[in-house]
């Protein structure tokens, strides 16, 4: 589909409606079901008691955080796939999320346990890992699938060991929380976290969208992109910083949620095509809906208990990944 302003508007409107739907369903469903009447009372400020707390202090922050995290992960996946020219690239698979998690864990270790300190060190961890990945990809200008997967596996193995080492030194009470966080969990969501992630997401998305046409050319290859006027190294560097920031902050707030960056851009491409001017906004908005829905499933599936949302995305994403691998050879971009 050729990108035009009217198509972009239509896509954004449609996906915003989907996002609203995911939000409403997420507010409604849960261990305690909240009917439309109570929901209306809550909206108009007339709801008191436990239902009001469940909606306003538990479900709403959790859904908002899910939306922002999903948007970030969807965007980051699309950017990685363009820059590494490999449709399987994704923050979790590449080990970038692992690097960020490692930074976040280290922040706890050195006593920087506030939201900002954790986010900052997670950003550092992500930055270091993206740097490593790009250095490996640099020699060829793109990343072979086998290199990509093996790099991710090795980076993840290293970070898992490091995280395990840190965990071994912590007390048992914290273990459950850390374990859930490692699988990607939104249970600890609150409005402070939403307020931290919102400006980061909006700013990052804005910068990434500004470079949509550059990314279109970069997917063709570095030589072609440079010959058509892209300052290849500078654009890659900016994308590298923004994506690291988004992954770092996201991971520090919600842990390791995998495969969203893989599935979301792919599903968008199947319907809207490969032009980044449509793909990027759509990946952000669809990613938001996707993770809100996944988290609602995570809350419902073993109710009254709740799963980490990363378990749900991995259940969906790992087979999706294998399917994409198996289709290799035919045209699966």
């Amino acid at each position: 589909m050729r990108a035009t302003p009217s198509r972009l508007t239509a896509v954004c409107l449609g996906l915003s409606l989907l996002m609203l739907l995911a939000l409403l369903v997420g507010l409604w469903l849960g261990t305690v079901s909240i009917g439309p009447g109570q929901f209306w009372d809550w909206l108009t400020g007339n709801l008191k008691g436990s239902s009001a707390i469940i909606l306003g202090q538990l479900r709403l922050p959790r859904l908002l955080l899910a939306a922002l995290v999903g948007a970030c992960l969807g965007l980051c996946g699309a950017v990685f796939q363009a820059i590494l020219r490999n449709p399987l690239a994704e923050p979790f698979i590449l080990g970038v999320s692992g690097g960020a998690a490692c930074g976040a864990v280290v922040s706890v270790l050195v006593g920087l346990s506030g939201l900002w300190g954790q986010a900052a060190l997670a950003f550092g961890g992500a930055l270091g890992t993206v740097g490593l990945v790009l250095a490996i990809a640099r020699r060829r200008g793109s990343m072979e699938t086998s290199t990509l997967i093996l790099t991710g596996v090795m980076i993840n193995a290293f970070f898992t060991a490091l995280i395990m080492f840190v965990i071994s030194t912590t007390t048992d009470q914290k273990l459950h929380a850390i374990l859930f966080w490692l699988y990607g969990d939104l249970a600890a969501a609150n409005l402070t976290k939403v307020a931290l992630l919102l400006p980061v997401t909006l700013g990052g998305a804005g910068v990434i969208f500004f470079f949509a046409r550059h990314l279109n050319l970069l997917t063709a290859g570095s030589v072609a992109a440079a010959s058509m006027g892209v300052a290849v190294e500078r654009v890659k560097m900016i994308m590298f910083l923004v994506v690291s920031l988004l992954v770092g902050v996201t991971v520090s707030l919600s842990g390791l949620i995998g495969f969203v960056g893989l599935m979301v851009p792919h599903l968008v491409r199947m319907t809207l095509g490969h032009d980044h001017r449509l793909l990027l906004p759509a990946s952000a908005l669809f990613g938001a809906s996707f993770l809100m829905a996944a988290d609602t499933v995570a809350r419902m599936i073993i109710s009254p208990s709740a799963l980490p949302v990363g378990v749900v995305t991995a259940f969906l994403g790992a087979p999706f990944f294998v399917l994409l691998m198996a289709k290799r050879g035919s045209r699966w971009w």
């Binding site: 997917t219 290859g221 072609a224 491409r269 095509g273 490969h274 045209r331 971009w333």
Partner: peptide, 12 residues
């Protein structure tokens, strides 16, 4: 010829 995968001829 370095071409973006998935793009149509006109888009390219």
């Amino acid at each position: 010829a370095e071409l973006a995968p998935g793009f149509t001829v006109r888009q390219t």
